[in-house]
Design a protein around this nucleic acid. Sequence first.
DNA 1: ATGTGATTTGTACTATCGTACAAGAAATCA
DNA 2: TGATTTCTTGTACGATAGTACAAATCACAT
Lengths: 236, 236
Amino acid sequence: MVRKPTSKETARKPNMREAILAAAEELFATNGFNAVSVRDIAQAAGANPGSVTYHFKTKDGLLLEIYRRHCGPMNLRRFELLAAAKRVRDLQDRLEAIVRAYVVPAFTSGSDLAGGGARFTRLRAVMSAEGNEVARKIIAQTFDDTSHAFVDAIHESLPHIPRTDIVWRSHFLLGALYYSLVTPDRVSRLSRGEADGGDAASAIEQLVQATVAAFQAPPLDHVAPARRRPVVGSKI
Amino acid sequence: MVRKPTSKETARKPNMREAILAAAEELFATNGFNAVSVRDIAQAAGANPGSVTYHFKTKDGLLLEIYRRHCGPMNLRRFELLAAAKRVRDLQDRLEAIVRAYVVPAFTSGSDLAGGGARFTRLRAVMSAEGNEVARKIIAQTFDDTSHAFVDAIHESLPHIPRTDIVWRSHFLLGALYYSLVTPDRVSRLSRGEADGGDAASAIEQLVQATVAAFQAPPLDHVAPARRRPVVGSKI
DNA sequence: ATGTGATTTGTACTATCGTACAAGAAATCA
DNA sequence: TGATTTCTTGTACGATAGTACAAATCACAT
């Protein structure tokens, strides 16, 4: 008898499933994938190890589901903000708006998941550093479109800069963004307590201002790629 | 009978010990600490798992030795280059020289270890992302002095920028530097093959130019830290 | 050459890993 | 309520982890 198909997506008691996802997200984001065991996750979620297997089949499946959960909303939000940014008339303001459209959703959640934005971005940073295979596949599929869209948008507001330079600089942006989420305490330490590296608002402002300036830097001359400028006492 | 004490540091056959160190460095830097087993390392080095235990006692000990091997030379080189950079008259050129003094030793080896600079820096990036305890201790001890010295030097050539901003921006520099070494292929992909993310010389030039511009960005006004500027359609 | 200490090998032990699976508990709908 | 589906629990299995240790091997000073 076919009733309401009780779609698999709308499980009846999502509590435990959600708890496992949240716990896994937190643990993976802070310790890496391999350092965290399924038992660690289950314990942190107040669940039984078997439950993890039941809901996600494998540990990779659990990671996959975390990505599925966040990628869509975050990129959607980025595209919304990018579209709005593109409508900004003033070129300088537009560039800043574009950068902000890229940065803000990474710190704050694009979905209704509480505070999940920064946590998920940190997770991506860690998976990227570990060269995680599952993550790599999803990233290439899901985020390259977004990245290209932003590179193109930035290039439009900085037509005199070669696209190659834009790519490098946006790569640096992502690296800085990642690192800010991975070791915020380093900022606090180096500033001798004057700055709070964990404060998302400060991080966003600092990152946006620094990055806008970096994008506006004069283009590199690609004529003589080797040894453009004498390096002080270096042997490179 | 006490002969020449055959100092423990000058072992008779350092080949295997070195091979293990090199293999571990490479594997840790690309896969993370926990994803790599002692057996993996031994196999890559053409050694027996027991040899690893013999030379380094534990897996943590092996990681520790890798750090010991590189930290000194790299920081020494950085300080040499920094001292030279500080003697540059022109302020703009000096700033660039300082940034270069920070970046170059991270890509190229400060010691005689072939190509070890980039590999070790990548290792640090990965350990940092994984929150590795052994690494965290050494980093705080060894690199904070260096970082402070560079922050101070940069601050001297940019006196009108608050130190806090300098700290943030140098933090971004390190993040960008790390990320360039972790996923160089992303640069190649996003530039559609026009740039080679793995080319150290390009990476250095791009990073230096972008970072110098970022440091020179106008300071953030710290008066109204919250919501300095309306965010396009955002809820942060 | 030979003995001695340094190194390498082989193997084993215990702990923990990811995952499977059967049995129990809970929830849903006729 | 009772039947059926959905979820949770407990336990177990094979694989692999880090490390220990005794035996075998090597390099070199005498």
